[in-house]
């Protein structure tokens, strides 16, 4: 699996699970924390999406080129 994508995945699940586990009783009350966590998660997820689409575009290009050379 792509190393950078794996790191992003680990970052995401590490963040969300630590957020879930931390301050078991209180973190719903201090709701500012939730917004920070959700925002960071959205940012990481967006970076991941950009990465995925960049790989997709490059791969698509190479695949079409190799298909053309074959025909």
């Amino acid at each position: 699996m792509n190393t950078r994508l794996s790191f992003l995945l680990f970052g995401l699940v590490f963040l969300s699970n630590t957020a879930c586990a931390e301050n078991i009783n209180t973190w719903m009350v201090t709701d500012n924390k939730i917004n920070v966590v959700v925002t960071v998660a959205f940012v990481v997820l967006s970076i991941m999406a950009v990465w995925l689409f960049r790989i997709e575009t490059r791969l698509g290009k190479i695949e079409r080129q190799s298909a053309q050379t074959k025909s």
């Binding site: 699940v13 969300s16 699970n17 879930c20 586990a21 078991i24 009783n25 973190w27 719903m28």
Partner: peptide, 14 residues
């Protein structure tokens, strides 16, 4: 469990 039940979405799904 309290609020940690939320890790159902981020841990069990893995």
């Amino acid at each position: 469990l309290h609020q940690t039940i939320r890790n159902l979405y981020f841990h069990v799904t893995m």
